[in-house]
Amino acid sequence: MNLEEYRGVWVFIEQRNGKLVDVGLELLGAGRDLADKLEVDLCGVLLGHNIKDLSKDLFEYGADKVYVIDDPILEQYRSETYMVAVGDLVRKYKPEIFLYGATSNGKDLASAVATEVMTGLTADTTLLDVDLEKRLFEASRPAFGGNIMATILCKKHRPQMATVRPKVMKKRDREEGRVGELIEESISLQEESLRTKVLEIVRDTKKAVNLEDAVIIVSAGKGIKDEKGLQMVRELADVLNGTVGASRDIVEAGLIGHDHQVGQTGLTVTPKLYFAIGISGAVQHTVGMENSETIVAINNDPDAAIFNVAHHGVVADAFEIVPLLTEEFKKALQEEAKEGGVAHA
């Protein structure tokens, strides 16, 4: 393939029943920087039904062009249809870089498209850049397994594709009135010829856990050993009115659900206060919490890597110190409550 033919940075814009999903805007922010370095257009790819107007927002968040396919067939996300639609666009307009949010549907689509157009795809990236003289896309993520970052390159294939963790990239401030070029395309598929059909979408609105919006997160790692240790952490979270987070190891160990997992393949969080209890601080975990305002780490190993990202650290046995903390906070907060200082507790 002639790489020169491929120009422009594309972002897949995810929408759920007519509303933009944040990650799309975040990627426009990151994509804008890449596009400026490469001196090319930043383009959004917007699929769905009755969603054309959303393009206005996309321009205001930094898109130069928006490719829209507005068709009933695309109302609900389906790999089957989206893969074909996006595949056709790529073959026709030849972007050099293509970013997707690492959401269920984003990952699903990116994987299918990568095979559809036979190119490379890097999963769960947390850092994006370009090597200008080689004109190469540098998509970085924690290396598989290791406590180390790796840059993944895609030298001989285009587009260079990556899925990007939500909440990692920053969206730009909205630029009121900023406009761009809207390119409308159509899709050739007929509903009759399709093999999948979304019958129903169920969202539990009272979302069990909501780490992303939590102000205080108390996270537990392998160091808390078992159910009992986790309970101890839960109690601390309760007095602080915080939310319980977790490292992948205790999620994998089945102690707590995946929706509590913080990190590269969990959630990215930025609370005001983050407790890391019995967490070693592997990069896969830290990429998900390092931007918290204040990080307090409790670990009995003075060499634990977590102390490199934490603001405050205590070298102590969690089983000893956490119950004490719970006690003290309880007392202190009750005091303040009496004095009417603190609203809750």
Binding site: G120, A143, N147, I148, A150, L153, K156, V283, A297
Partner: peptide, 18 residues
């Protein structure tokens, strides 16, 4: 199509106040 370019240890901050 994808290959691993450079690898580097995660950036260390000034470290926690212990």
């Amino acid at each position: 199509p994808t290959i691993v370019g450079k690898m580097w240890p995660p950036a260390k901050s000034e470290g926690a106040n212990i």
